[in-house]
Amino acid sequence: MKVTIEENEETGKFTIKVKTEDGEEKTIEIPKENLEEILAKLPPNVEII
Score class of each variant (00 low, 15 high):
40 A>L: 10
20 T>P: 03
14 F>I: 12
32 K>S: 06
2 K>L: 11
16 I>A: 01
25 E>D: 03
25 E>M: 08
49 I>C: 08
16 I>Q: 00
14 F>N: 03
13 K>W: 15
37 E>V: 07
45 N>I: 06
11 T>P: 05
14 F>D: 01
34 N>Y: 14
10 E>L: 13
43 P>W: 13
27 T>L: 09
3 V>P: 02
37 E>L: 08
16 I>H: 00
48 I>R: 01
13 K>T: 15
37 E>Y: 08
33 E>S: 11
2 K>P: 02
38 I>P: 02
39 L>F: 07
13 K>Y: 12
18 V>T: 08
39 L>T: 02
28 I>S: 04
20 T>C: 14
19 K>Y: 15
31 P>Q: 12
43 P>K: 03
32 K>R: 14
3 V>S: 01
25 E>I: 12
25 E>V: 13
43 P>I: 05
2 K>V: 14
13 K>P: 01
29 E>N: 06
46 V>S: 06
10 E>T: 11
39 L>P: 00
30 I>R: 00
23 G>W: 02
6 E>I: 15
2 K>T: 14
23 G>Y: 03
19 K>N: 09
30 I>L: 06
44 P>L: 11
8 N>I: 05
10 E>H: 11
45 N>V: 04
11 T>F: 05
15 T>M: 07
28 I>V: 11
25 E>Y: 08
35 L>H: 01
23 G>P: 00
45 N>G: 14
47 E>K: 05
48 I>C: 08
4 T>L: 06
4 T>P: 03
18 V>W: 15
14 F>E: 01
13 K>H: 12
26 K>R: 12
38 I>V: 12
27 T>V: 13
44 P>S: 07
16 I>V: 10
28 I>Y: 15
26 K>I: 15
38 I>M: 12
10 E>G: 06
17 K>Q: 07
49 I>Y: 05
28 I>N: 02
2 K>R: 09
33 E>L: 05
1 M>S: 07
35 L>Y: 03
7 E>K: 13
28 I>K: 02
3 V>T: 01
21 E>F: 06
36 E>L: 11
33 E>I: 05
17 K>C: 07
17 K>V: 13
46 V>T: 08
28 I>E: 04
6 E>R: 06
11 T>W: 04
4 T>M: 05
23 G>T: 03
28 I>H: 06
42 L>C: 07
41 K>Y: 07
44 P>F: 10
18 V>K: 00
45 N>R: 06
43 P>H: 08
5 I>L: 05
1 M>N: 05
46 V>C: 08
23 G>Q: 01
8 N>T: 04
38 I>A: 09
